[in-house]
Design a protein around this nucleic acid. Structure first.
Lengths: 355, 355
DNA sequence: TTGAAAGCGGTACCAT
DNA sequence: ATGGTACCGCTTTCAA
């Protein structure tokens, strides 16, 4: 073995005293070191490390002992380079400040982790350029799969994805045609279903309170669906209060406060549950009775909304399930199974008490 | 170039029609292909790709044109193998269902992403064995750094970390001595500070409502700190309601309901804001006046608590900041700068109105 | 069940 | 500013 420079920040130590089977000049323990320590070939050690079946128990024992003695740590970089499939999955989400995507990521991790995969994360911040850069950078690691909650896939992004042909799952929104696979719900239908329900409950006067819909196109689609259902019944939003900011409880509260000053409609439809909780809090703070004085509806089915003194009327979007199913799709594909291109996990109307 | 099998799920296509500079039998475009297309050497292309300065503008132009024409996609696996530092940072968190860690991750991503790094995620689920496995698996990718919110580092985990010598930041809790660097707050002091404040406000009757403290040792430390401050004043918790479950709003509500049946103490200290919101909701649902009939205090300073009709009395734990500072520590270390081993981001008492 | 040889696609080092 | 050469550490293929 020739000498070579240590990588910055990666100086593996020879190990303390007793566990120094083959100290080695550089301090790094490789497959070759373990092989020598165990008296077998490199490839045999490799087989043991990867848990392949065709190694005799006696050899496995010798090798495992040598691994422990030398303090060998598998190098997946070299493995992936040599042609083994990566256990990394690129995951691109628009945001992490919104708990919605944290939920999706959580669902993903549950499944991926138990199958031995890791997520490599990118946050696009609802920015198409950043999204493109992230795709390029993450694909450079040759991940086994890609999960993306797309913002607006650029031409370059589409080109990259077509070229690399990595198994890809688009998540959240099934209203558009997928590149490869898609898991989510129809946000348009979710918006419509809620409107139908509310109309059925007798509401006829509606207002909309929303966050930045320019970047969050799924929220825009929900609103469109909601409005379409209103139109079918000869109705429309009487007022809309929106702000070009990310959704949050205080924003919902603030916009609601603005509306309440000027004779608000009977029911306010919020762009999501965070915003709706703000509306609910504002109503409570003013001593209004919900839903008698003001009815409120949201979207997502966040747990906190269901635990509020007046449970939120909303639509459960099964976010963790979306993550899990997305992971399942990838895993099935890896296993060579045929999979559906499109999975609709469905939504659930939560009647609540706020409308 | 010899023939070789395509990796499953990674068949890079030759590119469509016009952009096929060098189709290549396997469909993969390598540095060599770009070099040939540009009429320069591989190493020159490599320099351009990495944005190194010592290449003439004319050459850069030629190479970039060749890259676009061939549809080359950088292979970071090979780069990292050959000795370039990885742009991956291993991140191990106990949970993602709790928004606290999503906030930390968000803070990390903000900084890491803008410096060109990616997080590779592992969720330990508050399980020491899983944590150890994750460390081993993630370190196998030879990340440039590691950020971990430790659960309980096993002997094997410590051995691995010492051996690999990857720059490591422990986050959340600075009450213990760090392996390498640590960024967070003293949860013990946070608990104490809140208790002092409440005692100063005249409260003398306290109860504790908590989630599974076996696994969430930081919550346990806060409670210990709080109690220590009580003891200094000859006080103690009059009652404790705990459950061996993860923290959640409904759990907080349920445990509070249990306590309120039996003449609850004057003030309830909750293990965190999720739990406290549950308490607040239960009080509101019963028509109790907060803080007149029941005072409530939490921990974390979640935004929603501050937007509630009665703003939550709590301690802001600056989670996103912890993530950012952790990233900064790593980046500074990569830049060869000397860094503090311990960074206390501090906490902020939010007086609120619930106590 | 085990092993030998040939890369995988880059980058570091040292020249020029 | 540019290039030649020698690996990085592992897994694949083929043979025994």
């Amino acid at each position: 073995m020739t000498t070579h420079l240590q990588k910055p920040g990666h100086l593996e130590t020879p190990g303390d005293l007793e566990e120094t089977g083959r100290p080695d000049e550089t301090g790094r323990v490789t497959l070759a070191d373990v092989a020598e320590a165990a008296g077998v070939s490199e490839i045999t050690v490799s087989r043991v490390v990867r848990g392949l079946a065709n190694v005799s128990p006696a050899t496995v024992f010798k090798v495992e002992e040598a691994i422990a003695r030398t303090g060998y740590l598998r190098n997946r970089l070299a493995g992936a380079m040599a042609g083994a499939v990566s256990n990394q999955i690129a995951v691109i989400l628009p945001s992490l400040s919104n708990s919605v995507f944290a939920d999706v990521l959580n669902g993903l991790e549950v499944r991926l982790q138990s199958a031995g995969f890791h997520s490599v994360l990118g946050i696009s911040n609802y920015d198409s350029d950043r999204e493109t850069k992230l795709i390029e950078s993450l694909l450079g690691w040759r991940p086994a799969g890609l999960v993306i909650a797309p913002t607006e896939l650029s031409q370059r992004a589409l080109q990259l994805l077509r070229r690399v042909r990595v198994p890809t799952v688009e998540v959240m929104d099934i209203d558009r045609d997928p590149l490869d696979m898609v898991v989510g719900i129809s946000h348009r239908q979710a918006g419509k279903a809620l409107a139908y329900y509310l109309i059925g409950r007798g509401y006829r006067s509606f207002g909309y309170v929303g966050h930045d819909i320019e970047s969050d196109h799924r929220a825009a689609i929900r609103r469109d669906g909601f409005r379409a259902a209103l139109c079918e019944n000869g109705l429309d939003f009487e007022t809309e209060a929106t702000a070009a900011a990310v959704s949050s409880v205080p924003l919902g509260r603030e916009l609601t406060a603005g509306l309440l000053g000027q004779g608000a409609p009977r029911l306010l439809y919020f762009s999501n549950d965070d915003m709706a909780m703000g509306g609910l809090f504002e109503a409570m703070a003013r001593g209004l009775q919900v839903p008698r004085d003001l009815a409120i509806a949201g979207f997502n089915g966040l747990q906190i909304g269901q635990s509020a003194p007046v449970a939120l009327t909303t639509v459960e979007s099964h976010r963790a399930l979306i993550g899990q199913r997305a992971a399942d799709q990838l895993l099935a594909r890896f296993a060579g199974q045929a999979v559906d291109r499109r999975i609709d996990v469905g939504f659930t109307l939560l009647p609540g008490a706020s409308a």
